[in-house]
């Protein structure tokens, strides 16, 4: 009985083992970006490149020369960002962004900006299919 199934069980267990090891090792690396809260509490300032993600705080966006100054928040902490480089088309106040660069403990200096749009597909009258449930959640 075991002889019949070892051909199946051996690759299955090897594959499962690789998958588990991969998951454990990647679980920290698979985090694509850090939040402002994490930068303040967990991530030590250094010259290493990292990614910061959050929403652009309304009223904080300012252009000064080549630089775009903005504040990014995760709802708890807000972090000032100085961005030099291309500004994506969908960039706007309140938009989710991911910036790539270095953090010195006070300001995040980025040269690459990505847009992280949400999973909602609203029409221009600002509805989603399950809007009743959604209102209940918010109140």
């Amino acid at each position: 009985m075991i002889r019949r199934y070892w051909k199946f069980l051996l690759p299955a267990s090897v594959l499962l083992g690789i998958l588990v090891i991969l998951m454990i090792n990647l679980s920290s690396n698979l985090v694509y970006f850090h939040t402002p809260t994490e930068l303040y509490t967990e991530v030590a300032p250094s010259s290493d490149r990292l990614r910061l993600g959050g929403q652009v705080v309304a009223g904080t966006v300012e252009e000064s020369g080549e630089m775009l100054v903005l504040t990014v928040t995760d709802g708890r902490e807000a972090l000032p960002v100085e961005h030099t480089g291309v500004i994506p088309q969908l960039f706007a106040e309140g938009q989710g962004v991911i910036v790539e660069g270095t953090w010195d403990g006070e300001t995040f200096r980025s040269d690459t900006m990505l847009i992280r749009h949400d999973e909602q597909y609203r029409t221009e009258d600002n509805q989603i299919y399950d809007s009743v449930d959604h209102q209940l959640e918010e109140s």
């Binding site: 679980s27 698979l30 985090v31 694509y32 999973e119 909602q120 597909y121 609203r122 989603i128």
Partner: peptide, 21 residues
């Protein structure tokens, strides 16, 4: 994991999409 790709729009009993779309 935290990704650049947005999270799933189709969540059980909570679809983040307007009817016509």
């Amino acid at each position: 994991w935290r990704t650049l790709h947005q999270t799933n729009t189709f969540r059980p009993r909570d679809i983040q999409m307007d009817g016509p779309i």
